[in-house]
């Protein structure tokens, strides 16, 4: 498998999330429509997902969802916009240490096609894990500080909270 094939293998993947977060995803995304409602919204689901991923990544916890319950997915990675953000997420995952990833870049070179596919799955599982952590964080906020979601600054504020806590 070469670079192109490897990338294609990644691009067709549809990262999942736990179904219990569907109502939240729906509330704070507007699935391609704009405006309306009491709460501040993101755009499409993948934006919400990428946001959740960043939250989870800053929190430093990758809680993989395998065996945690029913899951849902949406669009494949190559449909996510902006594509640069997808690259950034992949960059973050590939930057992780060998014990987190389970393989080194060099080992990747000598993998056969099946092993490469397994590595791709690992990558996607880790993306899901961070997004899961992020969604849990946002859900918690929604349950306990719902009024925050009326402020236009809400998602910036959450991001700043997790980043600033990390610095401390």
């Amino acid at each position: 498998m070469n670079s192109q094939e490897f990338r294609q293998e990644i691009d067709i993947k549809r990262p999942r999330y736990l179904a219990k977060y569907y109502p939240l995803m729906e509330t704070i995304s507007n699935k391609g429509t704009t405006g309306g409602g009491d709460y501040i919204k993101f755009g499409p689901f993948f934006q919400t997902y990428m946001y959740a991923f960043m939250i989870g990544y800053h929190l430093g916890e990758c809680n993989q969802i395998a065996g945690s319950g029913e899951t849902k997915d949406f669009a494949p990675l190559n449909h996510w916009k902006p594509s640069e953000m997808v690259d950034y997420i992949l960059m973050l995952i590939f930057s992780e240490s060998e014990d987190k990833l389970g393989f080194s870049w060099e080992e990747l070179e000598s993998m056969n096609d099946d092993e490469c596919k397994a590595a791709v799955s690992t990558i996607v599982r880790r993306i899901e894990g961070y997004a899961n952590t992020g969604l849990n964080y946002i859900q918690d906020k929604f349950n306990n500080e719902k009024d925050e979601f009326r402020s236009p600054q809400v998602f910036i504020n959450f991001l700043r909270d997790v980043v600033d806590d990390k610095v401390q």
């Binding site: 934006q47 902006p82 910036i156 600033d164 990390k166």
Partner: peptide, 17 residues
């Protein structure tokens, strides 16, 4: 504000920190 999270120009706010 939320658009700024993903805006390419100048830089997406999602990459704060």
């Amino acid at each position: 504000i939320n658009d700024n999270l993903f805006a390419k120009n100048p830089l997406p706010w999602l990459l704060y920190g």
